[in-house]
């Protein structure tokens, strides 16, 4: 088929043209790869867009406690450069855990904003400043207007904004279905940890669902939680490509 290469080329030029129009005179976006191929290949640009707003929520009880989602956000923030502003309303975030997820204590400035509205203004102020590596805000409600403001502020300065969605009650978590201006939307839920040969708790595992991705496809991933440099990893049995149980085991069981 001689037409195929030409049409592919036409698509490429068209895409570049659209990107140029979308950027509207701003510098092209940078991307922050996760360093996990299955994850990066699914994302346009090969990673999380810097200068954009991203949303993370926990699944199940994580929607209320927001423990895994906070660590996921910390892992992303840890791999940026510069200081990180973390806007909170509830004071239960435990700094040593962030340090274990790769986000050194010296890099994080916490802001205890009194209410959600104050969190959003601090969030936006942080994104507009431009000197920060990342800005994380813990909010329950995030309207289209509010998220649009945040996204535009992030676009102007190239700072990555991560909204950790966290609700007071399970019923309110249905709010996560409402549309926002965020570029990607993630849901992180805890899975049983990696098995160890001896009794004990292994490295935490997460079910990471990419629920929404602008110019990309949704996907689910089962990954090992952030290590001390903020990187996720493929579980060992998947990395080796031996997902199915060995045949001899089946025979022994049957």
């Amino acid at each position: 088929m001689p037409a195929a290469p030409r049409s592919a080329h036409a698509f490429e030029t068209l895409r570049a043209e659209i990107h140029r129009i979308e950027a509207g005179g701003r510098a092209p976006k940078d991307f922050l790869p996760f360093g996990v191929d299955v994850l990066d290949n699914g994302l346009p640009g090969g990673g999380l867009a810097l200068g954009a707003l991203h949303e993370v929520a926990g699944g199940g009880n994580g929607a209320i406690d927001g423990a895994a989602s906070a660590l996921f956000a910390a892992g992303i923030a840890a791999r940026t450069r510069g200081q990180v502003l973390w806007c909170i309303t509830r004071k239960d975030l435990f700094a040593p855990a962030l340090a274990q997820a790769g986000l050194a204590a010296d890099r994080v400035i916490y802001v205890e904003a009194g209410d959600e509205k104050a969190v959003l203004t601090c969030f936006e102020e942080g994104l507009r400043h431009g000197g920060l590596g990342a800005v994380v805000g813990e909010v329950a409600r995030l309207s289209m207007t509010a998220s649009r403001r945040l996204h535009l502020a992030a676009e102007d300065t190239g700072t990555i904004g991560i909204a950790v969605r966290r609700w007071r009650r399970q019923a309110e978590a249905a709010d996560f279905g409402q549309p926002t201006a965020a570029v990607t939307r993630w849901r992180v839920s805890a899975l049983p940890s990696s098995p160890l040969p001896s009794p004990g708790v292994g490295r935490a595992r997460w079910l990471i669902e990419l629920i929404r991705c602008k110019a990309g496809e949704c996907a689910d991933f089962e990954l090992e939680a952030c290590d001390e440099t903020g990187r996720l990893a493929l579980p060992a049995h998947l990395a080796d490509g031996s997902l199915a149980a060995p045949a001899w085991q089946k025979r022994a069981a049957g």
Partner: peptide, 21 residues
Amino acid sequence: VADLVDTLANRLGAGRLYRAA
């Protein structure tokens, strides 16, 4: 980021911004 810290501290109160150690 000292200017950002000033802006937020004057809006919210100095005790509301901190680093953990």
